[in-house]
Design a protein around this nucleic acid. Structure first.
Lengths: 343, 343
DNA sequence: GAATTTTCTTTACGCGCGTAAAAAATAAAT
DNA sequence: ATTTATTTTTTACGCGCGTAAAGAAAATTC
């Protein structure tokens, strides 16, 4: 396949028999050259395995083909899955995605935005930490770089937000639980990092009121992103104090529920919906691990594919529109109930 | 903090009162300029918020300050955790880590190596897919780029390997299980993607022979990285056929065990070490979720901190040594047993 | 086959920074 | 205060590619 080593575009142009400006044009958009020219260039690429120097390509260019993808916590498989879909679609569209995780730390998130700025990306898909995010840093960043928020909304920031409709999650789980048995109490962190948590609590209260049922919100201590641990500790505390107001528990998210179920098991509570069970537990997110809990978790699922797909498409439109939308777009996808054994 | 916008290093040099070559020297190594000069530059950075153009910095440089980090599957929180530690240490050492996930696909892995090559990284930390990896592509890559393998070893590739000692995992779990009850059978995938799996099976057979016990290896079908699903399906199959040769099961890794435990629960088998339990299950890895299984999983833990720490340090030494070691280094860290409730 | 449109070639400049060499300035040592 | 060692400045070139402009070549239209 190779003959001699090509050092730069000049050399490549000469061996491929095409002028350098045309070759340059090709690499910026293969469709911008005539089909016969494209074929000759691609044959030469195949033969000499040449790739333009990405640093030289980008240094004299205002807008690169890079796309930044930022998630709050990569050790959460939920984001692992989303990232996979996003990465693939970016590559298919001819962009180079760069992946970053804030690892739950606001300073990290800030540093990432700084790094991202110097990468001069064409656009950024940002899932912010939420409550702990440095709002002004994000706001300043969004002014400079075309940004689409996803997963967690921060009012007014970025040109668009794509996520799931928290009300849709909670209304379905509350409706289902109330219809099939005792209405649920709501289990959550006292100071949730993620703004979705607040929306879910409000949706719970709203739904209970609408159904003319008495709401019970249980808030457990704990900060950070070790939700399972927080859920487990909180559940142990509540169970040992026999402080559970109902025998049906709706957790704010699956990771809390995973901890909750673990505590139930350890404390000897049988979870499930038969008469021989002590309590029912349901949750939201359809976390990749939620079907392996014991019992398998009944939960409301994100429309993963739609959220990640639409986030990417929105960013592409944004880039094509020159980085600005007339009005900020907000797209929320509905959840769907996944019936398993826990409730 | 800001006054006027600095466009390039020339301007920055003039406003900071230092010549451009000295400023350039500073950015390549702050310690290489006199303390008083450094202070003046840093004051100016603070004041004008200037950052050199990374593309211009790197285009005319053989060796950048980039470090590539490649993991096989990012939706596995195990790698999420490792990545976090690695990223932080790279940044502390003044490098810019770029994160990539093969998402379980060999073509992805290959593409990542291509991308990485054009990033001209100072070094790469690569956790290969394993059996499915394109060996020749990795070999060619390692010839061009200083590379340290971690997690999965591929014989002879890269300048070093840092990982865990699979024998240490298995010897401890087998010893413990045999000492405290019925000796274990071994539960694994028939065609594991990861080479560690083969080492663990051999270690199991070896240990059983050494203890003069009869080994039983159960291999379940399934390909890909959905280990929990594979473990669950395999367990359901074995349990329904009552084909379990012993009442003590040692899973090759925690993700299989998570699926196994899920199946046990669903099939009504009580897992644990009391007399009122049906079987014991143990495993290897100390996956972040393994303490939230029901019951919590007894497992042999990686020395996460040592593996990721030593991998990074080895890469730094490799970079300082000019990208080559006289002989390929292999460092294996011992596991330690984590006693929980499942065995 | 001539006129028109599209595509390519030639020429040339600039991007922001690395880096080399020689001269100048500063600090440290005697 | 002088010598010596270290650091900085000045000057200058090059990296690999983007890109603009004008003319040449090729494809398309009539």
């Amino acid at each position: 396949m190779s003959e001699r080593k090509i050092r730069n575009m000049e050399e490549f142009a000469s061996v491929s028999g095409i002028s350098r400006p045309t070759v340059s044009k090709y690499f910026n958009d293969p469709a911008s050259v005539r089909a016969s020219t494209r074929a000759r260039i691609e044959a030469a690429i195949e033969q000499y395995d040449y790739r333009p120097n990405i640093y030289a390509m980008n240094q004299n260019r205002q807008l690169t083909k890079n796309i930044g993808v930022v998630v709050p916590y990569l050790a959460d498989p939920f984001f692992g899955e989303i990232v996979r879909v996003i990465e693939r679609r970016c590559i298919e569209a001819g962009f180079s995605p760069s992946l970053f995780s804030s690892h739950g730390e606001p300073e990290q998130e800030r540093d990432i935005l700084d790094t991202l700025r110097s990468l001069k990306p064409a656009g950024v898909l940002l899932a912010p930490l939420g409550r702990l995010s440095n709002k002004s840093a994000i706001e300043a960043f969004c002014r400079d770089v075309p940004t689409v928020l996803f997963d967690s909304n921060i009012e007014g920031m970025g040109e668009a937000f794509v996520g799931s409709d928290n009300y849709s999650f909670v209304s379905q789980t509350v409706e289902y639980l109330s219809r099939t048995g005792e209405p649920p109490c709501f289990f959550e962190m006292k100071h949730p990092a993620n703004p979705n948590a607040n929306k879910r609590r409000r949706a719970y209260l709203d739904m209970m009121e609408r159904l003319q049922l008495e709401p019970h919100v249980m808030q457990v201590d704990g900060t950070g992103w070790a939700f399972e641990e927080i859920g487990r500790n909180g559940a142990h505390d509540i169970l040992s104090r026999k402080a559970l107001p109902t025998h049906t528990v709706l957790c704010s998210n699956d990771r809390l529920a995973i901890g909750f179920l673990s505590a139930c098991f350890e404390a000897g509570y049988k979870v499930g919906r038969g008469t021989d069970h002590d309590l029912r537990v349901a949750s939201h997110d359809d976390h990749p691990f939620s079907r392996y809990t014991c019992p398998a978790l009944t939960t409301a699922a994100h429309n993963y594919a739609s959220v990640s797909g639409h986030a990417v498409e929105t960013l592409f439109r944004l880039i094509e529109s020159g980085g600005r939308f007339q009005t900020r777009e907000e797209t929320l996808f509905a959840a769907h109930l996944i019936m398993r054994d826990s409730a």
